[in-house]
């Protein structure tokens, strides 16, 4: 069970308070109509899914209801950092 720091509540809280929301930093294309089907399909369906360092979004669903980012190792489940929406991760290198 993960123990997650909500950067808005500024507290460690139980995983059960949060809901997972998939890979982070996937920007919606500004002009979808100009994309090829493949580009659009990539945006909608394709994810990096790494074994190791992963930037992902969580929602503090039964807390402040804010979305935020987590840098987590998908193999060891270690959480390196959590950061607010709009911020960039500081942990980006290395693999499990």
């Amino acid at each position: 069970m993960l123990h997650i720091y909500c950067p808005y509540c500024e507290e460690m809280r139980e995983e059960e308070e949060f809901s997972y929301s998939g890979e982070a930093h996937i920007a919606r294309p500004l002009d979808p109509e100009s994309l090829t089907d493949a580009e659009w399909g990539d945006y909608v369906f394709f994810r990096t899914n790494p074994r190791g360092l992963h930037h992902e979004m969580w929602n503090h669903a039964v807390g402040c209801r804010r979305y935020f980012n987590v840098t987590r190792n998908t193999h060891t489940y270690e959480i390196y950092e959590t950061y607010k929406m709009g911020e960039q991760p500081t942990v980006t290198g290395g693999k499990s």
Binding site: M1, L2, E15, E16, S19, Y20, E23, N49, R51, H54, E56, R72, T74, H75, T76, Y77, S96
Partner: peptide, 13 residues
């Protein structure tokens, strides 16, 4: 389990 994970284990809840 909702999150991505390669750990062959999930959460107790």
């Amino acid at each position: 389990d909702s999150y991505n994970g390669y750990g062959q284990r999930g959460s107790f809840h």
